[in-house]
Amino acid sequence: MQIIISNSSKEPIYEQITNQIKSLILAGELQEGTAIPSMRNLAKDLQISVITTKRAYEELEKAGFIYSIVGKGSFVAEQNLEVIREKKLKVIEEQLSAVIANSREIGLSLDELKELLKILYEE
């Protein structure tokens, strides 16, 4: 399991961990039922405090991405990928609507917006 932590990022470290594990699960790289490292081992490997990985795992559990069995460790939970995709799409739609509204305010055309999106997407 590859996780890269940035100490200079504005995003708190526990969020960096949850987001990366989430994407690994959503991308299918971590399959359902796979054991993930214990939070203490992960803390050691990432050279961060235990409480940070603990918080990351708690958030992942709350969101239903992983589950823990006392004495055995944590595992990737069963994912209803369709539902998650649907949810994500909805969020994206909302965000794009906001972008469009903002663009209209300053008179940015659709082509210009597409161009901007293209540049950012390929960055």
Binding site: R40, N41, A43, K44, Q47, V50
Partner: peptide
């Protein structure tokens, strides 16, 4: 030293 302490913490 910090590495060593971190290793110790693996045992909960």
């Amino acid at each position: 030293l910090l590495d060593l302490l971190q290793e110790l913490m693996v045992d909960g």
